[in-house]
Design a protein around this nucleic acid. Sequence first.
DNA 1: ACGCGGATGGCCT
DNA 2: GGCCATCCGCGTA
Length: 194
Amino acid sequence: MNDRTAAPYGAPLAPAFFDRDPAIVARALLGAVLRSSAGGVVTSGIITETEAYLGPHDPACHAVAGRTPRTWHLFGPPGTAYVYFIYGMHWCVNAVTREDGFGSAALIRAIAPLEGIDTMRLRRPKARTDRTLSDGPGKLCAALGITRVHDGASLQHGEITLHAGAPVADAEVSVTPRIGISKATDWPLRFVRR
DNA sequence: ACGCGGATGGCCT
DNA sequence: GGCCATCCGCGTA
């Protein structure tokens, strides 16, 4: 209904945007728009929280396991979606960073709902407020219909895309250790928009 | 406002 | 067999 409002974002971010250090990319993704057309319905949100996973040398990064069936697309070219299944129930989405074959990424941890909020509510019936619709990595994937079928897909042209949005100033950003991990727990690689 | 534990299944050792 | 880049509901305050 109110889904026809003008979307304040343009063309998808180019591969060159992602072909940088994952911490730079994770920071730069704050304020960007994550968009989905899964199921033929547009849902989107403004990114408010991200984390960087640095590669095979980062103990908390899935790349430490090497290239396995699960981590295959983490080693894809920059601007690829790396979607994985966790805790037997949830999906999480990353944007692959750096060069093809390296194995680093930026995890999208939270978005503020922008378009398709009615659809997001249907997909997340337990969410009581708009804010809790997509304020977690598993929640936002459920809200946007992101699943295994998107693993390995291009984030430039596909059902899931990333778009530049309004810039976010450093004064609005908190940098903290990453959440929910058991290794390298003190590395400051989580970026949160206040 | 917090803290804790159960759900649930694929994947690596 | 054990470990998860999580979420939700229930308990205590």
